[in-house]
Write a protein that binds this DNA or RNA. Structure first.
Lengths: 180, 180
DNA sequence: GAATTAGAATAACAAGTGTTACGGTAACAA
DNA sequence: TTGTTACCGTAACACTTGTTATTCTAATTC
């Protein structure tokens, strides 16, 4: 009856996402995505109502990407929030453009920081419970204090103003917890 | 001999800076600045070689603006780094667009965080000396720890994920210092 | 008042954006 | 083999960007 599609929704989203990773969210334009996919701009607008919709999907994919990143991140030590924090800081270093999109852009208002961190498994709640079980009197307050610290390190690494090693960073986080 | 200028360099820079404050750095385009000044785009290119140069001047003006902001900020309490930190966080809340330009944008690499904070009066050194005089064993390390905390709060307030009152924030900073 | 000349307005160029109209093409049904 | 029809490439529209060429204007000097 009809012609077979040669450009899939997957091709488009995948490439738009990789472009965000490599060149930043601002470079996801209709023509640039088309060039990278190797087609005209037409298939994009067949699949997505408009660019706004594609951008929204890239954002959603970035959220899932971060959550997978944390799931695969090596879990070391037992100090609450430290693994989550280490993953967050490493993510900011390695995936600067995705970090900006998720946690600093105007887009970032779509999901709260807490919502993204918590993910499907309730990562934050899990850490809060762990802290509580370890005798922390105010685990929510501890989370906030720790996270200010962690978010600060992550954001600072974007501009090159933070350059401690992973080992030093972990030490700092553990001290920070101990001092609470 | 010649015609008198009706659009000054001051008109242009002042308006470009105010546009950055109100609408963000990205809205400083030749035409938009011209509309706001009330002239054509021509006087801009008489005074500045190109837009890049104007943007550079806006950035420099933002640096000075922040430093004045801190100089006029009410100095309360004696805990080292706390006044500098409170000013920084308040600045992020009140001048979101300038904060982004100074401390998070690609532009931010022009001057290091430390350089901007320190200013002409050596604000950071001053606080480090104060800490030292008050018996702090590792004042540089203290500065770094405090500043991670402070930068985290400032950046979080941009996306609406930080909403503690000034009093609560100050308390946190003082505790943070005490725990070091 | 006339000539000179720098300042500024108008308009254009070239490149880039999102989006849409049109027409050719390829795959399947008859 | 012939239609049908969804897919996709080409080209265009309308808009925005930085920048520049041209033309008009106004202030000063003679």
């Amino acid at each position: 009856m009809a012609r077979k599609e040669s450009v899939t929704i997957r091709d488009i989203l995948e490439n738009a996402f990789e472009m965000t990773r490599e060149e930043g969210f601002a470079s996801v334009t209709a023509r640039k995505v088309a060039v990278r996919v190797g087609c005209s701009t037409q298939p994009i607008f067949r699949v997505y109502k408009n660019m706004e919709e594609l951008w929204g999907e890239v954002y959603k994919k970035a959220v899932l990407f971060f959550q997978d990143y944390y799931d695969l991140f090596p879990q070391m030590g037992t100090v609450p929030f430290s693994n989550l924090g280490m993953a967050y800081i490493a993510f900011a270093k390695e995936e600067k453009n995705l970090f900006r999109l998720l946690f600093l852009s105007e887009f970032a208002a779509r999901k709260s920081l807490y919502e993204i961190l918590n993910g499907k498994k309730g990562n934050v709640l899990c850490e809060i419970n762990k802290a509580s079980a370890m005798g922390c009197a105010n685990p929510q307050g501890m989370f906030m204090r720790m996270w200010l610290f962690i978010h600060g390190a992550a954001c600072m690494s974007l501009t090159g103003d933070y350059d401690l090693s992973d080992a030093e960073t972990r030490k700092l986080l553990e001290q920070e917890y101990a001092n609470g």
